[in-house]
Design a protein around this nucleic acid. Structure first.
Lengths: 336, 336
DNA sequence: GTTGCCGTTTGGATCGATCCAATACTTTCT
DNA sequence: AGAAAGTATTGGATCGATCCAAACGGCAAC
């Protein structure tokens, strides 16, 4: 910085002002300083700046243990979008359990390595929210806080609306017995998605009784659960995840049926393999780039104005129509 | 730190020594200081430490733009393993092109925000290597430097050995006409994998003529390429990626054939969907945790000893045998 | 009892940028 | 022309830890 000041014939403070309060400088001086900065390729020293400013301008994000066989595509795309959201640096760390995650939070905060956190994969009564809230650490969650209390800001994707759109799409194509392949009851995300199916079915006056089955994301249970739906003579299956949809493909083939032709299938998340399958899988795509953008926006707002009221944002996903939902034209994307 | 010093009845320097050179202290004093640190929950301020030490103890990693339809599972798992590798902090940033990546390198270095980088997805004559080497910035690449010159350390997975093992597995099961489904010639990774197939075929005295087809990772071209192999009456197909293997599944079904039963298929990368498919896909799994560990080890060595000779490490992948390669027992994992 | 030595502990300077208070400068008005 | 008012610029102190060199303590030897 001293070099820049010397070259521009000004004091070091003026250089600092050029960077942080450019409007305080006379245009002529500013130009001279800027030119010097450019010429020397000067960039302020992160650590020195953090030390004086008493903030790191870094946000923390915990990578959760990747569960074998489960697609992390969502986390991956989200992280990417987060990193792109400008202004702040992004520090990632791994944690294998919520407890360990909170422990790492504590360390990072004590070390003043981060100013705030972005949470992902929120659970019911998530310990992280309470802890961060208690310490008044700024944070945003990707995912609703499924508990009663309102701990902080969040952005989420309206899973119910996504599943509703998929169901609607099938109903409009003439299907009447539309089964739902979900997760075991109890997970906020899962139950929410089921509600979307119920809404659409009710609106179209279609039956829901015995048309619902649950399975974890493993192939075996998914196939069995899909089987029970097929026994109910469904002509279409709405799955709450792409993995479950894949299990449904299997169940169909076991019975000599062809997904997309004999029975329509839809998934959720628009995983990378959705368009690699045959038939390509109709799925619900989450607007992760937008989620990330909004997360950053909320976080910055929270940091600069800690006492503002909490903000909640529910974004609408898109239905990506491909071949598995019937011959209605692949690749068509429908905004809900 | 002053608080800790006061509580432990020592000077601040002694506290610093307790953290950085514990063996300089009398055991008794060390215990007193440690107790005080514990009691106050003290952790050294990252920025202050970086400033004085003139190093950030942070490594940078560029997230590349996720290509639609392409599995990022490898990057995802690798990043996770990297974050777990202790001692250093991990700063991620996004870059949409190699040029932009180098630009971000430059900024981060000027700001002293990172000390070193981990590169991923190396290309032929990668601009990043040359640039980092030119600035003598410590770095390790996950992926060989496919160029003639030897720019820096790398860790890579022996793709040829993986494909060779898959081919071997099929040959031992009695297959004689084993086709290879590869990428268009020219990519280092792709050509290397092809070589593994050739090696195994030669060793078993099997024909390779006209048993090789190339396609990009898109379903359409993969299906066509797989079709040309099937026209050659292959009884097994070794694909150099899981996406291509999936294209092969499609081609088989188009002809009324069943993957795994009528024609054996293997993939590469052990993507999350490999065990979700029906039949489950035999694939080659990269030891990403080990790759990450070795990357960190090499990086630390390079940082502490800049002039050491470059180190190259080729790790061996494992063949994960599932149903698609025939009825030889699913889930069996073979070390090569 | 004093000196000398070794190993531990201490105060002061430093890293690079920002904050604060004070000075130099410009402009305008009397 | 001189003074007031406001703006642009400057020097000095500061953030929290580490490095350095100097002082301190205990212990053994004379």
């Amino acid at each position: 910085m001293a070099d820049v000041a010397r070259l521009a014939q000004v004091g070091k403070q003026t250089v600092s002002n050029a960077l942080n309060n450019p409007d305080l400088l006379r245009p002529e001086t500013l130009a001279r300083v800027t030119a010097a900065i450019e010429k020397l390729g000067y960039r302020p020293h992160t650590a020195a700046r953090s030390l004086r400013r008493r903030e790191s301008r870094t946000i923390g994000y915990a990578l959760e243990r990747s569960v074998a066989g489960r697609s992390n595509a969502v986390q991956d795309r989200f992280l990417h979008a987060l990193a792109a959201a400008a202004g702040y640096r992004l520090l990632v760390f791994s944690a294998d359990s919520p407890e360990e995650e909170v422990e790492r939070y504590d360390e990072l905060l004590r070390e003043r390595a981060v100013d705030a956190f972005v949470l992902d994969r929120t659970r019911k009564d998530d310990a992280r929210h309470r802890w961060l809230h208690g310490k008044s650490v700024p944070f945003v969650a990707f995912g609703r806080s499924w508990s009663e209390q309102d701990f902080g800001d969040w952005v989420d994707v309206d899973g119910a609306a996504g599943i509703e759109a998929a169901t609607e799409h099938l109903a409009l194509a003439g299907h009447e017995r539309i089964g739902l392949l979900g997760w075991p009851a109890g997970s906020g995300t899962g139950d929410n998605r089921v509600a979307g199916w119920q809404r659409a079915m009710k609106r179209h006056g279609l039956p829901v009784r015995d048309l619902r089955a649950a399975a974890s994301n493993s192939t075996e249970t998914a196939r069995q659960a899909a089987g029970t739906l097929l026994d109910q003579d469904v002509t279409a299956v709405v799955a709450v995840s792409d993995a479950l949809a894949l299990g449904c493909y299997d169940a169909l083939r076991e019975r000599g049926l062809q997904p997309g032709t004999d029975v329509a299938v839809t998934g959720f998340d628009d995983s990378p393999f959705a368009e690699l399958l045959a038939p390509t899988l109709t799925s619900v795509e989450q607007p992760l780039e937008q989620v990330a953008e909004e997360c950053v926006r909320m976080l910055l707002a929270r940091i600069s104005e800690p006492w503002r009221p909490t903000e909640h944002l529910l974004l609408t996903p898109r239905l990506v129509i491909r071949d598995s939902s019937g011959p209605s034209g692949s690749g068509v994307v429908t905004d809900i």
